[in-house]
């Protein structure tokens, strides 16, 4: 008993934490600080770095309309994905939370399955559906509605479909968690006081589920805005998102200082969102869905 008392062993929690904290410090905190410094260096044509305080990368990233347009496009894609996830995801979350269905545990389990199915496979699976020899085109031709396959893939909408497919479980789970916690008596009370089912929903259920909706939206937006795989697999040549720029700068052009500056822009954008969310809601809401 005595040794579990924090007063007696003040160092023990730190000993337990030290491996994890060391890893986070060495592999995350210091590297992020490093790229902040690195973004002011210059990469010469010969591939050597010039250390120092040069604003060239930042001038390029912040001044060039090319980067600004892609940043705007990225925000648009992430926003559209989040809104669709919220609208589409609310329905099953509501159903699972409110249903008397005996096997609702299985519905929840099914909801967890996509987390375990590889992202790349779920993304590429849409080629089987929407590709020129995919399910939809073969179906349309078989019905005689079209003579030739329609090119449905490789545009911003297929990027959005792929992202919604990937992120929907995050939204449903978060909304479900907050809907499930609502005291049913509140809804019954609203009904018995004369409100219609729709009024009871908009004035009681919906406001009480906002924390889950906000947590799900944050996850969807942040994960959507940071992706570069989905645009590469399901997007066309003009559908590059901001993370694609980062990937190109680092892996293709090997311009590491420029890539650093680009990553920091993405980090700043999403970091502000996370910080605002944390200020108003706190991270505990997101942790709940792991329980």
């Amino acid at each position: 008993m005595a040794s579990l008392d924090p007063q007696e062993k003040p160092l023990r929690p730190w000993a337990l934490l030290s491996p994890a904290l060391t890893a986070i410090l060495l592999l995350l905190v210091i590297p992020v600080c490093f790229i902040a410094v690195y973004s002011f260096w210059l990469r010469t044509a010969t591939g050597a770095d010039i250390a120092g305080f040069h604003l060239d990368n930042w001038a390029e990233v912040l001044g060039d309309a090319f980067y600004r347009d892609i940043l705007g496009f990225t925000i648009w894609i992430a926003f559209a994905t989040t809104v669709i996830c919220a609208l589409v995801g609310y329905i099953p979350a509501y159903f699972i939370a409110m249903t008397q269905f005996r096997h609702k545990a299985y519905l929840l389990l099914l909801l967890m399955l996509p987390f375990w199915i590889s992202y790349i496979i779920r993304t590429m699976s849409w080629i089987n559906i929407l590709g020129t020899s995919g399910v939809v085109n073969v179906g349309l031709q078989w019905l005689g509605l079209t003579d030739e396959p329609i090119q449905m893939l490789y545009n911003q909408w297929t990027v959005i479909i792929g992202l919604v497919h990937f992120l929907l479980p995050f939204m449903i789970l978060n909304v479900y968690v907050s809907l499930y916690a609502i005291d049913r008596n509140l809804i019954d009370a609203a009904r018995s006081l004369g409100s219609t089912p729709w009024q009871a929903f908009t004035e009681v259920t919906l406001p009480l589920s906002l924390p889950g909706l906000a947590a799900g939206s944050l996850l969807c937006f942040v994960l959507a805005a940071g992706t570069y795989i989905t645009p590469l697999v399901l997007g066309g040549p003009t559908d590059a998102m901001f993370a694609n720029l980062v990937f190109d700068a680092i892996i293709t052009q090997l311009n590491w200082p420029l890539g650093s500056a680009l990553s920091l822009v993405l980090l700043a954008l999403l970091g502000v969102l996370v910080a605002v969310y944390n200020r108003f809601a706190g991270m505990g809401q997101i942790a709940k869905s792991f329980g």
Partner: peptide, 10 residues
């Protein structure tokens, strides 16, 4: 931290 940023930094 977005995974891309984590990847680049490391």
């Amino acid at each position: 931290v977005p995974e891309v940023v984590l990847a680049v930094a490391l």
